[in-house]
Amino acid sequence: MWNLLILDPMVNILIWLYGLLGHNYVLAILVFTFLVRLIIFPLTWQQQKSMAAMQEIQPQLKKLQEKHKNDPETLQRKTMELYREKGVNPLGGCLPSVIQFPILIGLYQAITRSLAASPVQLLELSQHLYNPLPAALSWLPNATALIPLDSRFLWLDLAAPDPLPVLPILVVVTTFLQQKLLTPPSTDPQQATMSRTMQLTMPLFIGYISLTFPSGLSIYWILSNIIGTLQYVLLGRASLKNLFGTEDGSFSLSGFLGLPQAEPDPKSRSGRRDRK
């Protein structure tokens, strides 16, 4: 079922794009990533809206938590009332992610499968291709005639890890930048610490695994980050305040790097050090 609905269509579309775009696999990944982003746009848009709404009600939530800290039942009831009142779905941020997950997994598998570099991989790929092509699709390039794909690009063999650590570094940088641009500062100091840790560890983690993954996948990740960031910039969701961790969006290296700040001032709403 997975192959029929997700993987096989993705593999074939990716290879058709490769055929239509002058046998350039990087271009095929770019267009494919763009198409996938376009398809899942309603989900990501919903997710962003939900995150923004949650962010807006943070001060009220905090007040509720302080007011009813000794009465969890009331706190829960009041919280739910607040959600209802503001039209916030607490699962609104997670559900789109859950739905996107299989699509992204399929995308990952499609890229690795189509870059078959060994006999077993090529054999597996053959089982995912539409061969022969149905008559209604005969105007498309015949995927089997395009195999093997040309996996060379600049100094890279897209089916093998980057021998220079250029792509892993770009993966780290673009993942970090995207997260920074999109994640609003939290009002909760504990959550802010978690968020800061995630913003540092996640890019490093993805960069680490990209050292061993095919470079084609790293390219997908970088392009996906860039397209994702551009998408949010165009929608006005990205913010320099998020990037530099400052109220007015002015440059701050420590804020940019998410370095630990001084003890938060309890009077400060954002929990960050007061600027003089």
């Binding site: 060994s118 991989q121 050292l211 061993t212």
Partner: peptide, 21 residues
């Protein structure tokens, strides 16, 4: 997770075991 994923990846080392008959 990183260790597991790295183990599954297509490095010129680990991946090639069983990549053919």
């Amino acid at each position: 997770l990183g260790t597991l994923l790295a183990g599954c990846g297509s490095s010129s080392r680990a991946v090639l075991t069983g990549s053919s008959w």
